[in-house]
Write a protein that binds this DNA or RNA. Structure first.
Lengths: 136, 136
DNA sequence: ATAATACCGACCTGAATGGTAGGTTGAAAT
DNA sequence: ATTTCAACCTACCATTCAGGTCGGTATTAT
């Protein structure tokens, strides 16, 4: 399994924000209720999205979250890379990984590299708008 | 990360068996030494390969393992599915998973399905012989 | 008999998942 | 000013999984 609940919940939140965008900020409590997800857990997932300007978060009464782009401008891959970390198929390809000493002669690495590329290319070809429209 | 050491080690073993096939059975101890992998751990990984006739294992002195097909007849995907379980990107798609009650209306499922297909198609297009030949 | 080998089950450690609990900060409504 | 609602933050916790290790048993050639 690659994609944990963190990434899946983040996608659900993004879709909810996209579908209920009236210009107002939307409280996470509303989204949690609508989507049937644990509020406290969502609160732990969302900071990375606000820090990366994926969504805009406003505190205080009447606050909440709002998209910063149009739904068709959010590739699914971008959301997943932020919430899940790299979508690397093997640890060797992860960003922070200490380089494997067999890297130079490794004969499986090209395969993992290509797989990594294929996965990212596909996930970046789908947008939040596509998910909503059922355009898969 | 999708692929753990189980699957990666299994591939290394298969490549080693393919490259050192003289018709004789090859002791796992030899492979562990050559590849620098923990023998005891390999012994825990291999039974699933023998049970599925991927390799043939013979006990006793002079025993060991031997491929049952030619290297070009082993798709990487087959080895990985046996050692890693499904290569499903989300738990919802795993074989033994209890069906999600939102499955019918889930709008991300088609994307996961397609991704799953893409991953399997690629990994099944590469064979052990390709890995050895650097044919990626 | 002995040595070498696959095979098998129990155990162990550390990290990650999937949360929960409780509080702090900030802004708007009263 | 006070209250209320919201994001934000830190610590904790239970369960599962990764990546092994350990010790032994069954089987076969010499």
């Amino acid at each position: 399994m690659i994609i944990s609940t963190r990434g899946r919940y983040a996608l659900r939140v993004m879709m909810d924000l996209a579908e209920n965008s009236s210009g107002d900020y939307i409280a996470m409590k509303k989204i949690a209720e609508r989507q049937g997800l644990p509020l406290k857990y969502l609160e732990r997932i969302l900071p990375v999205l606000t820090q990366n300007r994926i969504v805009e978060g406003i505190q205080g009464k009447g606050g909440g979250y709002r998209l910063t782009r149009r739904p068709e401008e959010y590739p699914v891959g971008e959301i997943l890379r932020l919430t899940e970390g790299d979508l690397a198929p093997v640890t060797c390809l992860e960003c922070g990984a200490e380089p494997c000493e067999k890297r130079a002669e490794c004969r499986t690495l090209p395969m993992w590299n290509k797989l990594h590329g294929i996965i990212n290319a596909y996930l970046d070809s789908v947008t939040i708008a596509d998910l909503i429209a059922g355009n898969i």
